[in-house]
Amino acid sequence: MTINEIQSELVDEFSMFDDWMERYEYMIELGKSLPIIDSQYKKEENLIKGCQSKVWLYAELNNNKIVYTADSDAIITKGIVSILIRTFTNQSPSEILAANTNFIDEIGLKEHLSPTRANGLVSMIKQIKLYAVAFQTKVS
């Protein structure tokens, strides 16, 4: 699936929920299915420091596609990372760099996008894209 297709799929899934509580419960569920970072990579240099919760993000190139893994100490943050990873993992660096993240707004999580928001979602997206920049030169 393309990034756009995955994003529409997520928008569809979230549109089924009537209220914030169901949306958050689903996000907590998604958090539990996050592809967890291998413990050897769960170290300081892969840490994205938000003010309140920690996020570790790691990426590898596999057949010219980037595979992301992550973890967080907060479950809602895990849910958000999991949504991002589902969107961007197994895509090529150029596709990742070209993609926008407007769908975050559409699934009702816009509040997490504010630059002051302590979970560091903006930093996560930035880091995901930085990996894509780094791997772009290695893609044959």
């Binding site: 914030w20 309140q52 907060a74 479950i75 809602i76 943050t77 302590a118």
Partner: peptide
């Protein structure tokens, strides 16, 4: 078993403003 950030996020949704973090 809960991260303070998660609790803070949900209680905010319920109208309660608390501070979470360090």
């Amino acid at each position: 078993g809960c991260h303070p950030y998660d609790i803070g996020t949900i209680v905010d949704k319920l109208g309660v403003a608390v501070r979470t973090g360090h």
